[in-house]
Amino acid sequence: MADERVKCEASAQQEKDNDGDESGQKIASGNGEAAAEDQSLSKRQRKKLLKQQKWEEERELRKQRRKDRKQQRRLQRQNHHQEEEDRGEAHSVRKRPRREVTSSSLKLVVDCSFDNLMLIKDVRKLHKQIQRCYAENRRSSHPVQFYLTSLGGQLKQSMDDKDKGWVNWKDINIKTEHYSEVVAKEELVYLTSDSPNVLEELDQKKAYIIGGLVDHNHHKGITFERAKELGIDHAQLPLSSFVKMNSRKVLAVNHVFEIILAYLEKGSWREAFFTVLPQRKGAVAVGQDGATAQEREEEDSDSDSDTPEQTEKRT
């Protein structure tokens, strides 16, 4: 039995040795084939193969170089634009004298308490008008003390959604309270076209209120009624004394605001009106006799067509 076990182990070892020899022969054969294949390539083909390998190895390096060049070009463009802007600013500073700014103690208040009377599209129009008021006051040579009162509801939501930077506005007083809680009652003057009082001069000690309402004439006279209910002064701009218009005398919030800024700068209602009023309003200058230039021309034309007898009767 022992002899048979020894024989079996010897046989198994012989088979393992044979398998090893075959594997070694296969490896040697494979290496030989590769060497033979390499030797079969021409010098030009080997050179091309090496070049391809090098190309693949340097792929990431080329990609990084492209990124670096792109970044460099971007920085060069930015530097070029900045240089142009700096030259332009330097030129404008040399060309224009520094504007003198004289702040006014007069207060202009936009009353935003009509939020529930407007559709959202009109609230957004009011938002744009307020933006215009803010911008014009910032660039004015005679900026006023600007107040927004009763801010909330749809208007505040529109400002939060469309103009998040409004919270950083400068030189403006933004209040959630009603204007009657912010400014002393004796200082208040509500500007409304329905008032029988005509504003001839601006009082620097007063706070003039502009109704923040875009309603397309759905709530006529509401600002006048509010002023009477609170028992505060009210007045209308002297528009009829200087301007004849095709439309109603109701002006947008920013137009009233800009007219007052223009009056503070120019000292003339006539110049202020015609500087600000849009052409679509059909504004025509009114003379001292209350007639427009066109009406006077028509009267002159009628006079020229009179007979000598008619002229003699008038004289």
Rank of each mutant, 00 (worst) to 15 (best):
D111I: 01
G88T: 07
S92Y: 03
R98F: 10
E100S: 03
P97S: 09
R99W: 02
L108Y: 01
H80G: 09
R87K: 15
E100Y: 00
R77D: 12
D86G: 11
V110F: 00
L106S: 05
H81C: 07
D86Q: 12
D86C: 10
A90T: 09
R77M: 14
E85T: 03
H80N: 15
K107G: 15
S103W: 09
K95C: 05
T102S: 13
H81S: 12
S103F: 11
E100N: 03
R96I: 04
R99N: 05
H81L: 11
Q82H: 09
R98C: 11
E83P: 00
L108E: 02
S92V: 05
D111S: 02
R99H: 04
R96P: 04
K107S: 15
S103E: 11
R77C: 08
E85I: 04
V110L: 06
N79A: 14
D111G: 01
D111P: 01
P97F: 07
E83V: 10
E100P: 00
N79W: 09
H81N: 14
P97G: 06
R87D: 12
Q82G: 03
R94H: 06
V93E: 15
A90M: 11
R99C: 04
E83M: 13
H81G: 00
E84K: 08
E83T: 14
E84H: 01
R96Y: 08
E89F: 11
K95I: 02
S104P: 00
S103G: 12
V109W: 03
S92M: 05
G88R: 08
Q78P: 02
E100Q: 06
R87H: 13
N79T: 11
R96S: 08
S92Q: 06
D86K: 15
Q78C: 04
Q82R: 14
E89L: 14
R94D: 05
V110G: 01
G88M: 07
H91P: 00
H91K: 08
V93L: 12
R87I: 09
R99E: 03
E100H: 03
E100C: 00
G88L: 10
S105W: 00
G88S: 08
K95M: 03
L108P: 03
Q82L: 10
E85D: 07
L106Q: 12
R87E: 11
D86T: 09
Q82N: 12
H91I: 03
H80R: 15
G88H: 11
Q82M: 07
K107P: 12
E89Y: 13
V101L: 10
